[in-house]
Amino acid sequence: MTGAWIRFAVSAGCMVLGLVFMVSAVFGVNRFKHALNRMHAAALGDTLGILFVILSLIVMRGISMDSLKLSMVIIFFWIASPVSGHMISRLEAMTDERLGEITVLEKNNGILVDMPDEERADVQASSKKGKRKKGGKGR
């Protein structure tokens, strides 16, 4: 009986830890301003979040065919997630024309902000160039 409760405690701890990682990933994606910063937050959930949640399911199940398949999901995710992250960052590096610029914080009604979201959307939507000043040679 005590062993069963210990197993429950371990799996509950792993699951809550994975949930904490997912919450911080979603929080980061909603909070950061630029796409590359958002990718940094999203990769947290793609690696550690899914690792801990599925690890807790493996602890629940014990060693069986199902837990083997669940660990296959983790292995596949850890191979696929960096590849898709690389693709997304390459898309961002190609399409974002202000990528090389250093953002300068401005005061807007007394609050420090960098570029507002609408302006970035305008830059990305129109095919006009927004004068890249720094970097951009290596792409």
């Binding site: 994606v29 796409a35 974002d96």
Partner: peptide, 12 residues
């Protein structure tokens, strides 16, 4: 705002 933001969110 951008297309890559949307792709990141959908991936998550």
């Amino acid at each position: 705002p951008g297309i890559s933001d949307r792709i990141i969110a959908v991936n998550m």
